[in-house]
Simulated assay, not measured.
Amino acid sequence: MASNKQAVQRRAQRVRRQLKKVGNGRVRLSVYRSSKNIYAQLIDDAAGNTIASASTLDADLRKSLKSGADINAATAVGKLVAERASKAGIKEVVFDRGPYIFHGRVKALADAAREGGLTF
């Protein structure tokens, strides 16, 4: 029987495999959620580099947030990553939720990124 870590990796790979089929070369908005923080980054898989990133550990967000692990923090990170994406000239992305269910903090980040101007 697979360990929990292996199951999480399998779920993340399954999501990424589906994204490659429907992505059409778009930049991937990847989300990582820990128990204390949330991170988002825009990844260009063709070139293999990160274009922009945002997290609750950024200096400007850290001061304004009460906690890095709630829906308000995820909303702030979503807005910040959308702002940085627009500065980089990116409007269309594909959303990589990783092994996480599209619910709670992950959904809040996605909604805030959509409000910030990203389409996916």
Results as ranks from 00 to 15, higher is better:
residue 66 K to Q: 10
residue 69 A to H: 14
residue 97 R to A: 10
residue 85 A to K: 13
residue 49 N to V: 15
residue 95 F to R: 01
residue 48 G to M: 13
residue 110 A to E: 11
residue 110 A to V: 11
residue 102 F to V: 00
residue 51 I to K: 07
residue 106 V to R: 02
residue 102 F to L: 07
residue 55 S to W: 13
residue 68 G to C: 12
residue 55 S to E: 09
residue 69 A to Q: 04
residue 40 A to I: 06
residue 45 D to K: 03
residue 65 L to Q: 13
residue 85 A to S: 10
residue 80 L to F: 02
residue 90 I to K: 08
residue 45 D to G: 10
residue 72 N to M: 08
residue 87 K to I: 01
residue 51 I to W: 04
residue 74 A to L: 04
residue 102 F to H: 10
residue 58 D to W: 09
residue 47 A to N: 15
residue 90 I to Q: 05
residue 89 G to H: 02
residue 40 A to R: 05
residue 91 K to H: 06
residue 54 A to R: 02
residue 69 A to P: 03
residue 56 T to W: 11
residue 87 K to H: 09
residue 94 V to Y: 01
residue 78 G to A: 09
residue 63 K to R: 11
residue 82 A to T: 05
residue 88 A to T: 11
residue 76 A to Y: 06
residue 78 G to N: 02
residue 89 G to R: 07
residue 46 A to R: 11
residue 82 A to N: 04
residue 88 A to P: 00
residue 86 S to D: 00
residue 88 A to R: 04
residue 77 V to S: 00
residue 88 A to H: 09
residue 87 K to P: 01
residue 95 F to A: 02
residue 84 R to I: 06
residue 107 K to S: 11
residue 52 A to E: 12
residue 86 S to I: 00
residue 91 K to Q: 06
residue 91 K to M: 08
residue 97 R to G: 05
residue 78 G to C: 01
residue 64 S to A: 07
residue 69 A to M: 04
residue 41 Q to Y: 11
residue 85 A to W: 01
residue 98 G to E: 03
residue 70 D to H: 13
residue 47 A to C: 09
residue 43 I to N: 01
residue 50 T to C: 08
residue 44 D to Y: 03
residue 65 L to S: 13
residue 54 A to H: 03
residue 96 D to C: 12
residue 46 A to L: 13
residue 50 T to Q: 05
residue 84 R to D: 00
residue 63 K to Q: 15
residue 73 A to T: 12
